[in-house]
Simulated scan of single mutants.
Amino acid sequence: MIRTIAISQTNQLKPDLSIEELIRGDFLWYWIDFGQPTTEEIEFLRTPLSFHPLAIEDCVHTLQRPKLDYYEDYTFLVTQALNQQMLTREEIDFFLSKDYIITFHHNFSSEIEEVWKRLTLSTNVEEWEPSHILYLVLDKMVDNYFPLVYLIEDRLNEIDENSKGRSMEALLEDLFDTRHHLLSLRHTITPMRDLIYRVLNSQRMTSIQGKREYYSDIHDHLLKLTEMIEANRELTTDIRDSYISINSHQTNHVMKVLTVITTIFMPLTFIAGLYGMNFHYMPELTWKYGYFATIGLMILVAIGMSLWFKKKGWFK
């Protein structure tokens, strides 16, 4: 679907004009939105809009890395939004000039929809211009990153609080799922941060010079998001290492108890094995009290070794 808005020389909104009318007309600027376009509608990027084939190719092939390309009389930007329900990346492309802004996206974009409605309902269109629309859409995109990061933080807190008593397999599965989501967010937010940095330091995007503080605010938000993601990734590592350490400690304690029990039974097994030999000339075998003396010796050895291990602190 293609929709258009034009701003006339008298600052009047002119919606739903054809692309040919926009190109031939005398307007302050205009906005064309390619939302979930068909193959026929994509052809408008070639004719009559005459954009560079490489930029059109980037639009057609989805999930390009966020980037900024300069062409003769316009700037092309590839950005990535995040789907709030699916936690997936969705590409939004911009063609920006002082005379127009053209947005292109294969999926429904809540950010563009909100800015479009704000423009159509605006009573003061003099404040609007293509670079301002770009800022508003980017700002909404970045703002929508935060709930996803906060959701992951809450999930990590829940995992941390409920880590005791859970099996290692279940805990590690949750942690690895969380790390996967964090990695996906980092692959989106870090390139976006670099993109906004390039926009801020661009000498060719003169249209944003009067709005540098707005774009700088977006960059600050992306820096904060990057730090939050890295902190959460470190937290997943800390939770994993702590849980593994606790389990290792518990395993070591069990092994220590088993070692103590085995060590106590070693001399008892030796005594039982020694007198289990069926040699005919063993003096103790014919002794009247031999059995009771051997049992008593085994009990004394077991008690003595248990007291000695307790004194050494092996039962703690």
Rank of each mutant, 00 (worst) to 15 (best):
T237N: 09
T237R: 04
L285P: 05
F279T: 03
L268G: 06
G276E: 12
V260E: 07
R240I: 09
L268T: 03
T286D: 14
M277Y: 11
W287N: 00
D238M: 02
S245Y: 03
I271G: 12
L258R: 04
Y275T: 14
T262S: 13
Y275L: 02
T251M: 01
D241E: 04
L274E: 01
T236M: 00
I246C: 10
T259S: 15
G276S: 09
N247M: 08
M282W: 04
F270Y: 11
Y281Q: 01
T286Y: 15
I264C: 13
D241Y: 02
T269M: 14
T269K: 08
S248Q: 15
T259M: 04
I264D: 00
L274D: 03
K288N: 10
F279S: 03
R240K: 08
K288Y: 04
T251Q: 02
M266R: 08
Y289L: 11
T262R: 13
D241T: 04
I261Y: 07
Q250E: 07
T237Q: 07
G276R: 01
I244W: 07
G276W: 12
I246M: 07
K288V: 12
D238I: 04
Y281G: 08
T263L: 09
R240N: 07
F265A: 10
F279K: 00
A272E: 10
I271S: 12
T262P: 09
T259R: 13
T262N: 12
M282S: 07
F270P: 13
N278M: 08
H280T: 14
T269R: 10
I246K: 04
W287L: 05
G273N: 12
G273D: 01
T262K: 11
Y281C: 00
M266V: 05
Y275P: 09
